[in-house]
């Protein structure tokens, strides 16, 4: 079984954010997506989980064409695909406790009753590296790294197959980033997840991804094995990106 995504032509206010993009992500794979800010990576990520409608193209999920799915048809699918965003400070409902936010998806989808939902949440705390103390707190009382762990746990409650990670650690400090990436890698193995990992940090993308797609002005200009993109980029834009990154790390 594989996941195939094909999407094209998104027009937003006559500005083409994503153009003729075709690619697929295999089960259990991590596909990295890199590019400058404003290149359309975030738009693409939202298209893939059907948070935005698109103008042209087709989107397959687990061999089903979900391009024309209505909101109602999408509802059960929402448990299978999740998205995690960049900003920890606005990721959770500010007036809900962490526990309320964590059980909400299960209750919304009427998968379990409240008691079972709490049990499920408790089981998920350990894999993401949280402890029970945090459950009664409010988002503003919790650090950014912990919020991202909570958001990951929240996504996991629905037993998803595919998670879009839209720069999940770009607002975190390096040492915290390393911790969160560690969590993401562990749960990927444990729950057999497929990732689309978006970032502008080349080293980070290379570290987590099997393959990397390079995006420039709404188009995917290169897609290959991580090592290849990083070491022998073919497209001039990828070369520019890699060189800028390398230069910036070492040149003095």
């Amino acid at each position: 079984m594989s996941k195939a995504f094909q999407s094209g032509w998104l027009r937003q206010r006559k500005h083409e954010a994503v153009k003729h993009v075709s690619f697929s992500i295999g089960k259990g794979e991590t596909l990295g997506l890199i590019g400058e800010s404003g290149c359309g990576k975030s738009t693409l990520s939202r298209l893939m989980v059907k948070l935005l409608p698109f103008d042209q193209g087709k989107l397959f999920f687990e061999d089903t064409d979900i391009t024309k799915y209505t909101m109602k048809q999408l509802f059960p699918l929402r448990t299978k695909m999740q998205i995690i965003f960049q900003h920890p400070d606005s990721a959770l409902h500010p007036r809900q406790t962490i526990l309320q936010s964590l059980v909400e998806p299960l209750l919304l989808h009427q998968i379990t009753d409240r008691k079972q939902a709490i049990e499920r949440v408790m089981d998920l705390l350990a894999p993401v590296g949280l402890n029970e103390e945090i459950l009664s707190r409010y988002p503003h009382q919790v650090s950014g790294g912990q919020i991202q762990r909570v958001v990951i746990a929240r996504a996991l409650t629905l037993s998803p197959r595919f998670i879009v990670l839209d720069e999940p650690t770009s607002m975190l400090d390096v040492s915290v980033q390393a911790q969160v990436i560690d969590v993401l890698k562990t749960i990927q193995k444990q729950f057999d997840l497929t990732y689309l990992f978006i970032s502008h940090d080349l080293d980070l993308v290379a570290h987590v991804s099997d393959r990397i797609a390079v995006m420039c002005k709404g188009e995917i200009v290169e897609l290959d094995q991580s090592k290849k993109v990083l070491n022998e980029p073919v497209h001039p834009y990828s070369q520019k990106l890699v060189n800028a990154f390398r230069g910036y790390q070492t040149n003095r």
């Binding site: 939202r46 989980v49 948070l51 909101m71 999408l74 509802f75 929402r78 448990t79 695909m81 999740q82 998205i83 965003f85 960049q86 900003h87 606005s90 990721a91 959770l92 409902h93 500010p94 007036r95 909400e104 998806p105 919304l108 989808h109 958001v151 929240r154 629905l158």
Partner: peptide, 27 residues
């Protein structure tokens, strides 16, 4: 705010989002 996109991605419809997420945060 990202929590609005977040609840939409989890499957909250417009009504749910408005009543549970938007209005409480304007109290």
């Amino acid at each position: 705010e990202s929590y609005i996109e977040g609840i939409r991605a989890i499957g909250g419809n417009h009504m749910y989002t408005l009543i549970r997420y938007v209005i409480p945060n304007m109290i």
